[in-house]
Nucleic acid binder design. Structure first.
Lengths: 209, 209
DNA sequence: TGATAATGAATGAACATTCATTCACAGCCA
DNA sequence: TGGCTGTGAATGAATGTTCATTCATTATCA
C-alpha cells in the first residue's frame, strides 16, 4: 500500500490508529451511539484528519468491519487442517475461537453487535460470508466423513455452535459468569457432543464408507 | 374527529399503542438508530402526545424493556412444572421459546439487541435477572436430581443453551437458513444431549438418591 | 518555497424535547 | 333546547442541542 520503508513506530499509519481507536469506542458504545469526535480524540488525531483518511463515518464503519472480519477469518482458518474434521481439529478451532475472544475482545464484540447493520454495504456483507462459508464447509465435510452426526443440517449445526460460543462470552461480558479454562474445556466438550454422531437414541443413518 | 361514545377499538390505551409501535420500530432500526417522531407516527399519535405518556425517550425504552421482559418471563415460566426438570419439561420449555420467537419476533429481537444497554436503568437490569434467575434454578435443580449432567457449571450450561437458541433464530433472521419444524426438533434434541448426563466418557458423578 | 498533512472552529442537518395553541366534550345557565 | 365555559388531551411548529462534515488556517517537511 504505502511505500515508506523506514517508519519505526507506525506513525505513518494514522489510518490504522484511527481503525484501532474506532474499534475500541464502537465496542464500548455502539456505532449509532458514538459520535465522530470521540473517535478522533481516542485516536489522538483531529476530526479533520480523520476525514482525510475516511470519507465518512459510514466508510469508516465498513472499513473497520471488513478489516476485523478478515482478522477473525485469518485467526480461525489460517493453517487449519481442513482435510477432515476430527476431534483434534475441532479442539484447535475451539482454542482459536477462545484466544480471539480473549485477546481481542473489542473485535469479537464489534463483530457480534447488530447495531451497525444499517451502515454495512454489500461488500461488508460479503466479508461476512467469507468467514461463514468455510466454516459451514468444514462442518459438511465432517458430516460426510462420519466424524460429525448427520442429525442436524449443517446450517443448523453451525448456528447452534456459533450461537453457543457467542452466548458464552456474552454472558461473561455482561457479568453473569466468569469463564475459567476448565469451563471453556467443558463447554468445548459439550459442543463436540452436540455435533458428534448420536450413539444411543438415533436410528442408523450413517453414511456408507 | 369521531364522536362515538362507545369506544369500539381501545383507543383509550395510547400508552399501549405507543409501546407496541416502539417495539416494532426499535426491533427494525435499533434504539440509537430510531428518532422519536417515527415512533409517534407508527403509533398514530403526535410527538407531543408521546411525551404526555412518557417523560423521555429513555423512559420509553426502559418501560418497553421491562414490559417485554415480563412478557417473555410469563410466556416461558407460567405454569411450567418446575418440581423437576425431565425431558418433558425441557421439551415444553423449548416449545415455549420457539413460539415466543415465532409469534413475537420483534419482542424477541428487541430483548436480544445490545444497543439499548446504555439506556437501561437499574430497574431494567433487575428485570433481566428476574428471568435468568429462575432459568438457572431450573438447571441447577435438574443437575441435583440427576436429570442433567454435572459436567457443566449451571451458569455455563445456561449460557451455552441460551446462546445456541438465540443463534438459531438470529441465523434465520439474517437469512442464513430457514428453520423447519423438523430443524427445531432436531436442535432441541441436540441441546438436550448437550445438557443431559454423559453416558460414555464421563466418570460416575451421579448423586445418591 | 511549495506541497502535503493536520487542525478545530464553523456549518448546516437531524435530533430530543417543549409549549402555545387547537380541539372535543361535559357541565352549566337562561 | 341552545349557547357559554372550564378542562385537559392532542397537536406540531419552534427550540436548543448534538451530530457529521467542511474548510480556512497553520504546521511540517522536502
Amino acid at each position: 500500500m504505502t511505500a515508506q520503508p523506514a517508519e519505526r513506530q507506525p506513525p505513518s499509519d494514522k489510518h490504522q490508529q484511527i481503525l484501532d481507536a474506532a474499534l475500541r469506542v464502537f465496542a464500548a458504545r455502539g456505532v449509532h451511539g458514538t459520535p465522530v469526535p470521540p473517535i478522533a480524540r481516542e485516536a489522538g488525531v483531529s476530526v479533520g484528519s480523520l476525514y482525510r483518511y475516511f470519507d465518512s463515518k459510514e466508510a469508516l464503519v465498513n472499513a473497520l468491519f471488513q478489516a476485523t472480519k478478515a482478522k477473525l477469518s485469518e485467526h480461525l482458518l489460517t493453517g487449519l487442517p481442513v482435510a477432515r474434521l476430527d476431534r483434534s481439529v475441532f479442539d484447535e478451532l475451539w482454542h482459536r475461537l477462545c484466544t480471539f475472544a480473549r485477546q481481542q475482545p473489542d473485535a469479537f464484540r464489534f463483530l457480534e453487535m447488530q447495531d451497525h447493520h444499517s451502515y454495512l454495504d454489500p461488500q461488508s456483507r460479503d466479508s461476512e460470508y467469507r468467514l461463514l462459508a468455510p466454516l459451514r464447509q468444514i462442518i459438511e465435510l465432517g458430516q460426510q466423513t462420519g466424524m460429525l452426526g448427520t442429525h442436524l443440517r449443517a446450517e443448523v449445526a453451525m448456528a447452534l455452535f456459533w450461537g453457543a460460543f457467542v452466548g458464552l462470552f456474552k454472558a461473561e461480558r455482561l457479568g453473569y459468569l466468569t469463564l475459567s479454562d476448565q469451563d471453556l474445556a467443558e463447554a468445548r466438550d459439550a459442543c463436540w457432543r452436540t455435533l458428534s454422531p448420536q450413539r444411543d437414541t438415533a436410528p442408523n443413518n450413517r453414511i456408507e464408507p
